[in-house]
Design a protein around this nucleic acid. Structure first.
Length: 423
DNA sequence: TCTGGGGTCCTAGGACCC
DNA sequence: TCTGGGGTCCTAGGACCC
């Protein structure tokens, strides 16, 4: 049986989520901003038509946004995460194998659907997701993941109204590849685009005709896999189970630059606490953390500083207090006064399940007691809002905090914020 | 002190993704 | 004033061992 894979992709996902709860924004331009309300990370079709680019810094397009009465939202990942779960749950009824690839995309393995007309099936998927969740999706179907990505892009470029595109013959593969510039291939970023165009490869079709040794030499094994996929040979495996996490990272720019040591440390302590909480929620522990501080690289006229430090822990842990203590010691060695800092962060590496943590005979911590303490802390913070209970180093300053001036309510996950309807 | 190959492990950096 | 954050994978090069 021939392999067939569908890629289901939510249209303008974050913008669609915001619109769902404000129907008056139907057919109106919407943008969603990154953390700190810094730049545009999602746009409705109407906003795209106004020429608003992905990644555009919001302070540069303020006038444009006002002129066209664009609705602007800070990103609300709690809301998007919850709606994503609903979409994925709906999709799971349409295939035995579903791979959730990102917050707004999933691959469905349709290889066993022998007698179906795949295009009709794709329409059913699309309509059902719309009916169950209100989120519009596009469906691309092809013999490999990379071609399914291309099919999905063609939906948006040429078949917007239909919402579905199926690549199921040699001729259709050729047509699709000839209508896809190399920069739009999954796995080709800006650097490879330059390399490819310099060598005369302009479309995916050109690349699929390239000598395979050239591809191996210049695009490495990843490129070689992609090359096969373009030619209809599926070689990127289907991952039903999410792979084990290898790192957990919390790093953020500040609302404004800081030159006060205590304030930078306070931000780092808070990000470290978030890493610890994430580890606990996934029953993981870390034995190596990496911290960094950095200045604002966009301010070319100011002195720049970046330094990171990797810290080995004696025993793997997910205890907030312990991790903050190590982070603070590291911070003392990398912090230099006299700079305007704009960002800091903490990454936990070498993760392992808490059940596999090896103890150390010199270990003086009372781990059982610490772990109970953390459970209580998580419980309180879950019920009363995060940061109700915190450690001294996390402080109370808010100067480092994110700016989120246009945050929408968590309609679906916080009972105080559910939609009320006035009759 | 120099000669030398092969293997492993680690790190930094570069590429990509959403 | 204001330019995202969280990930993965691959490769090259150095340190070290036998």
């Amino acid at each position: 049986m021939k392999k067939m894979i569908a890629l289901v992709d939510c249209n303008n996902f974050y913008a669609s989520c915001e619109r769902l709860f404000q129907p008056r924004l139907q057919n109106k331009p919407i943008v969603v901003l990154s953390n700190n309300d810094g730049c545009v990370i999602a746009r409705s079709d109407e906003a795209k038509e106004l020429g608003i680019e992905m990644g555009a810094p919001s302070f540069l397009i303020e006038t444009l946004l006002q002129q066209h009465n664009v609705s602007v939202f800070s990103s609300n990942y709690t809301l998007y995460g919850d709606l994503s779960d609903r979409v994925m749950t709906t999709l799971s009824q349409f295939a035995n194998q579903v791979e959730v690839y990102s917050i707004d995309e999933a691959f469905l393995n349709l290889s066993s659907f022998r007698h179906h007309n795949l295009t009709d099936y794709a329409h059913t998927i699309r309509n059902t997701v719309m009916q169950h969740t209100g989120i519009p999706v596009s469906v691309g179907i092809a013999p490999s993941k990379t071609l399914a990505k291309i099919a999905n892009r063609l939906v948006k470029k040429r078949n917007k109204q239909l919402g579905v595109y199926c690549i199921d013959s040699k001729e259709k593969i050729q047509f699709a590849l000839q209508n896809t510039p190399v920069k739009d291939i999954w796995g080709i970023g800006s650097q490879y685009t330059k390399l490819l165009t310099r060598n005369g490869f302009n479309t995916a079709w050109d690349l699929s005709r390239a000598p395979s040794e050239w591809v191996r030499k210049n695009l490495s094994v990843v490129g070689q896999r992609m090359y096969n996929e373009l030619n209809g040979i599926s070689c990127i495996t289907f991952e039903e189970m999410p792979p084990k996490k290898k790192m957990v990272c919390v790093a953020r720019g500040f609302g404004k630059v800081l030159n006060d040591k205590n304030e930078v440390m306070e931000a780092l302590a808070n990000y470290t606490a978030m890493v610890a909480a994430k580890l606990r929620s996934e029953q993981l522990a870390t034995s190596t953390i990496q911290i960094f501080v950095q200045t604002n690289a966009h301010r070319a006229n100011e002195p720049q500083y970046f330094r990171s430090l990797t810290i080995q822990l004696p025993v793997a842990t997910n205890n907030t207090n312990e991790l903050i203590t190590h982070a603070r010691q590291g911070f003392e060695t990398i912090y230099r006064p006299g700079y305007n800092y704009s960002k800091t962060g903490c990454t936990a590496m070498e993760l392992k399940p808490v059940t596999e943590v090896q103890s150390n005979i010199f270990d003086r911590e009372n781990r059982a007691r610490n772990s109970q303490l953390m459970q209580v802390l998580d419980k309180v913070n879950r019920s009363f809002g995060k940061n109700t209970v915190r450690f001294a180093l996390q402080g109370f300053s808010s100067r480092w905090k994110l700016r989120q001036l246009k945050l929408s309510p968590c309609y679906t996950t916080r009972i105080e914020e559910v939609l009320t309807i006035k009759i």
